[in-house]
């Protein structure tokens, strides 16, 4: 549990997950988030299993077996624990930090998470994803187009695997 300060909605920027891009050379995935009111993007590098989990949620793919984030979602459904929102709260030396806000019978709890787990759960529970103005200013991804051009030429055809 963290002691994250309370954020008002004015402090936050709503994000939507646009897509997950494969970086097969490093076995990582890039989660591309967009600001809801703009076309500007924000990229977060995540591990392959977490990235694939986010992609399955985006595609609404129902796996034949519950994967790790489906299991967390199922725990929440059984116990009535709601994922209220996810906030990407900080970035330090290229590592992003997230806080997941949970609610059960009026009791709110905050838990520390990697953005990948937070986003994978948010997409499965229809919880909104936010970041702060500070993190948004310090984000990576301003040169997304250049990045994607480089990646796409290498990875054409591999993204749907």
């Amino acid at each position: 549990m963290t002691t994250t300060p309370h954020y008002s909605l004015d402090d936050l920027i709503a994000l939507t997950v646009n897509r997950v891009v494969e970086d097969s050379n490093t076995d990582t995935r890039i989660v591309v988030l967009t600001r809801a009111d703009e076309t500007e993007t924000f990229m977060i590098w995540v591990g392959a299993p977490e990235g694939d989990s986010i992609r399955r949620a985006l595609d609404s793919t129902l796996p034949s077996r519950p994967m790790s984030h489906d299991l967390i979602k199922n725990f929440g459904e059984h116990f009535g624990i709601k994922t209220q929102r996810v906030i990407l709260t900080d970035v330090k030396s290229s590592t992003y930090y997230a806080t997941v806000y949970l609610e059960n019978k009026g009791v709110e709890r905050m838990i520390d998470a990697r953005p990948s787990d937070a986003i994978a759960l948010a997409l499965r529970t229809n919880a909104p994803i936010y970041t702060t103005h500070d993190v948004w200013k310090r984000r990576s991804g301003q040169h997304l187009d250049a990045w994607l051009t480089k990646l796409d030429t290498k990875n054409i055809g591999t993204q749907e695997v």
């Binding site: 549990m1 059960n104 009791v107 520390d112």
Partner: peptide
């Protein structure tokens, strides 16, 4: 660990 924190929270 996140899964465990989720359960521990409640």
């Amino acid at each position: 660990d996140f899964m465990k924190s989720f359960l521990d929270a409640y």
